[in-house]
Amino acid sequence: MKLRIKYTKTGVLRFIGHLDIMRLFQKAIRRAKLNVSYSKGFSPHQVISFAAPMPLGMTSEGEYFDGEFDLVTSTADMMQRLNDTLPEGIVVLDIVALPDDAKPSMSIVSASDYIIFRNEECEEDIISRLIEKIDDMNAMPVVEVMKKTKTKEELTNIKPGIYALHEYVKQSPYTEVYDKAIYMMLASGSILNLKPELVIEALCKQAGITYNRYNYRVHRLETYMGERTSLQSLGTVGKHF
């Protein structure tokens, strides 16, 4: 049976790279004694695949991976067994069973939303100063930033990738406490992909602040699939069991 597992990656685990998180789950699944399926061949490996890879430094409360299981118990039991063995910072939030024809999560991701808050090492009012520029930026038809690729640097219009941008007034239970935060919903996935860092950089330009990556913490709230007008979180296609 194919399951989709939603999890968090918070706190100091933001310094663990994507591949290492995959290895961490492989071990956790074994410690939790879940009956994951193994591939055939001389060195069998677990049949699991992760949705969007997460850059170093980012935290999240909306990550997903899919796994094929030979036997399953119940959502509650499997969650409990995993959470009992996962390190602090990673919590399984939900497990759903996918319909047989479900596409792998990696291929269907279309958007993510994030909150941005201040890293405690930087000036206190930095986020407020950026928030002041949000209305201006939302009114601009074109937002250009320098985008670096492996080979070149070029001005790119990031506006089409910004689905929403405003102040965020709630406190996430999965981050450190912040006084001010910015919310952004951005395109992500294989068709159009916009990194939150580029939006912050654009805001900094508006506010006349030199952009420094380490002044900001980026936290993903949720990963979505579907059209821009009808986005739903990756977990909605499945059912509890």
């Binding site: 100091v12 685990l13 310094f15 663990i16 961490l24 956790a28 170093l56 390190p87 910072g89």
Partner: peptide, 9 residues
């Protein structure tokens, strides 16, 4: 950086 953050299982 994971070399320096501890918190391992």
């Amino acid at each position: 950086p994971a070399r320096y953050i501890g918190n391992e299982v």
